[in-house]
């Protein structure tokens, strides 16, 4: 049985996704909706990290339940820089690149949840399947957010 590997991988990718969302938020403080929503939905991934660490114990794993923190000094520096850059139009391209990155990361995480759900079903691990059913929709919403935001932002950035 390799379910523990799937849990471990998801724990890693959710941690990474949360970090990527927070870093993106900091880089776009002057784009207020991106700043706030990215933080709101990073919380979903952090919640998943905790839940995965919790269930991981049943599969002999010792995963850190605390989502990887973002160093506060770095965070503030990024926010300050993005505030100062707020008057220039270059952050537009950076925003598109960041959204593309989030889309790919979240899509990967979504696939990982699918793998886990398939495994859980095959192994008849009811709790694990329930966890996947609870968390996977959040990941799909993260994917759709990145996609929708990218669509909405692309035109102005590219034609102006």
């Amino acid at each position: 049985m390799k379910l523990h590997l799937a849990i471990e991988e998801l724990h890693r990718s959710e941690n990474h996704l949360a970090g990527a969302l927070l870093a993106m938020s900091d880089r776009h403080k002057a784009d207020h909706e991106v700043f706030h929503v990215a933080r709101d939905i990073a919380r979903w991934s952090q919640d998943h990290v905790r839940a995965l660490a919790d269930i991981g114990r049943d599969f002999g794993l010792d995963l850190d339940p605390e989502p990887k923190g973002d160093p506060t000094v770095l965070e503030k520096a990024r926010q300050k820089a993005s505030d100062l850059m707020g008057r220039s139009s270059t952050p537009g391209m950076l925003l598109l690149a960041d959204l593309r990155h989030i889309y790919r990361e979240a899509s990967g995480t979504s696939l990982d949840w699918e793998l886990l759900a398939q495994g859980a079903q095959g192994a008849r691990k009811r709790e694990l399947l329930q966890l996947a059913e609870r968390c996977h929709p959040d990941t799909l919403r993260q994917v759709r957010w990145a996609n929708g935001k990218l669509k909405e932002s692309a035109t102005q950035v590219l034609v102006s």
Binding site: A30, R87, S88, S89, Q156, S160
Partner: peptide, 14 residues
């Protein structure tokens, strides 16, 4: 484009 975003585009100059 909603109003708040219009002001954002004006802020960044597009």
């Amino acid at each position: 484009t909603h109003a708040m975003q219009m002001f954002r585009y004006a802020e960044e100059g597009s």
